[in-house]
Design a protein around this nucleic acid. Sequence first.
RNA 1: GCCGCUUUAGCUCAGCUGGUAGAGCACCUCAUUCGUAAUGAGGGGGUCACAGGUUCGAGUCCUGUAAGCGGCACCA
Length: 659
Amino acid sequence: MIDLIFPDGSKRSYDDGASGRAVAHSIAPSLAKRAVLVKLDGELLDLDRALPHGGRFELLMRDAPEALETIRHDASHVMAEAVQELFPGTQVTIGPSIEDGFYYDFARDEPFSLDDLAKIEQRMKEIVDRDEPITREVWGRDEAIAHFKSIGEVYKAEIIEGIPADQDVSVYRQGAWKDLCRGPHLPSTKAVGKAFKLTKLAGAYWRGDHRNAQLQRIYGTAWASEADLEAYLHRIEEAEKRDHRKIGRALDLFHMQEEGRGMVFWHPKGWQLWRTLEAYMRRRLDAAGYVEVKTPQVLDRSFWEASGHWEKYRPNMFVCETVEGEELSLKPMNCPGHVQIFKVGLRSYKELPMRMAEFGACHRYEPSGALHGLMRVRGFTQDDAHIFCREDQIVSETEKFVRLTRLIHGDLGMQTSYVALATRPEIRAGSDEFWDKAEGMLAEAAKAAGVDVVIMEGDGAFYAPKLDFVVKDAIGREWTCGTLQLDYVLPERLDAEYVAEDGTRQRPVMLHRAVLGSFERFIGIMIENFAGAFPMWLAPVQVVVATITSDADDYARQVADTLRARGLRVELDVRNEKINYKVREHSLAKTPVIAVVGRREAEEGKVALRRLGSDGQQILGVEEAANLLAMQADPPDVAEGSAQRTASTPHEAAGAMEA
RNA sequence: GCCGCUUUAGCUCAGCUGGUAGAGCACCUCAUUCGUAAUGAGGGGGUCACAGGUUCGAGUCCUGUAAGCGGCACCA
């Protein structure tokens, strides 16, 4: 007998081998019809599978949030069945559910076309209508390998070959079609419903390895209801409007062109945004005890040989040759340069930790297919810094960095998706003891800074682990904006040392770190986050003074000058256009404030402020408006500072800082 | 780099089965001085990504190259 505990707390006993459906039936026959899955002690099971043990038991309906993943997984199976019906000879490989949908990787010589997607989608709907029961079977491993080989499914056979010899495998039968799968699945294809859509066609390597065959991946999205599907498609459509490449063009921030793939031409407004960001970063770094340096853009081959980059990183380097036969490379990284500065003179332990920052322009020859707007470029500027420290300073320096990054990202409206702790890769330098310690230090520091890390197994550099701050763009792609990497190797290689308390020469540890990652990528993400409507302090143009008639032109110039004198970035619009036209244009350009002046304002010495996103007006005297706008345009760190200054006691100052 | 798709005016896009290029916005000129999301009229602008090929004839068909886009791999 097995004992089940129901969600309401009641308990009941059932015969061994009872299935979820049988249990449901014992409660109410209608329940057995509606249920699609079982949740037993938190684990999802097929409705018809014999319950393996007792425990907390719950029946899931099709619209349960937990069922959605299974709907998507089943949709991928239905797609695979449809594809094999329509395109005999196509091999199936793997087809999981993913965020918002699913995919399936197929092996087929002929490429699928976009037209095929519509046909496949149609056939999927037919399979749903067929209401094919989905049943689980347990096969012996060898039996399964033989079967899949016999029907020409070599990829499936290869997957099973990776399973331990003594283990059985589960095979799901869905009508005449079957697939190796761990499950669980819905009771029949009908339960998948029709709220799905095939979205894109892509290439993908077998087992994610570029040395393997390239498969054809079909992506789809699937939802519990038609309404959810519609909402999703609408969401994606809206998100695509926030694409930084579109907004970058619309707001005249930057452009790129063929002759400079992966290189950015920053236009005046885009560059203003950059300068604002850079100035802000510089203040934050100054306050955090960093020193700023600048190192050469181009260095001799011998330099990169010494650093090890020539050997390991050469394919990614822009190398040039001079008429005199020298071989030089644009710097792909700033680290070796910083070590040179560290090495000048004799360093004392008293100088550690030394936090050496540089807004360092780097060039890397990135694979052509990797380039992506501002997010992945070949010429980019890192907000780089290297912290030279003793081993016993790693944890506290890492903690400080994590806190600084959280502060800065918060100021810039960045939503961190997660912080990844990238651990030891398979091919690595250093002992297991070293890796245990190194990973432990980063985890400890993150925890001390109040951050939960997601472990990314095997993603570390080959010589040390790292912390990555991962953020998402408008449509959910993940990008690293902010990273910290531990490094014992480069100081050794480039022979950096300091004199310790006891007079001995010691090796410092280096922490490579960036808060933004790169200005390019970070600005790209910011554009998408704000959909181009930057907060006042970041907006390239903060105020447009717009006239209604040319009578107010002179007055408008005075207003603009007054605002500019307060440090505001102001544009003057005295064109012979209607105010409606000007308001529309500057609103579309996402200008935070439009200061409208007409004859009335000119006579009364006032301005009518209109804020982006509202159609109300605020009529103020010019001085009053200048004070208000200047205050509102304060960068967050400056605002923090003035809040501290205005606080009358140290106690209040501390309070102001926390607020 | 790999797989697929795309490339027509500054931008967004029409252009059916090959018959010799079009719209809206933007730009320029003129008129209009009009109180909070598009004033009207007129005008200029394209070797249809590039290079070959098929054809009497190619923006339309074929091949190659390049770039862009979506993924994969790689990565800040």
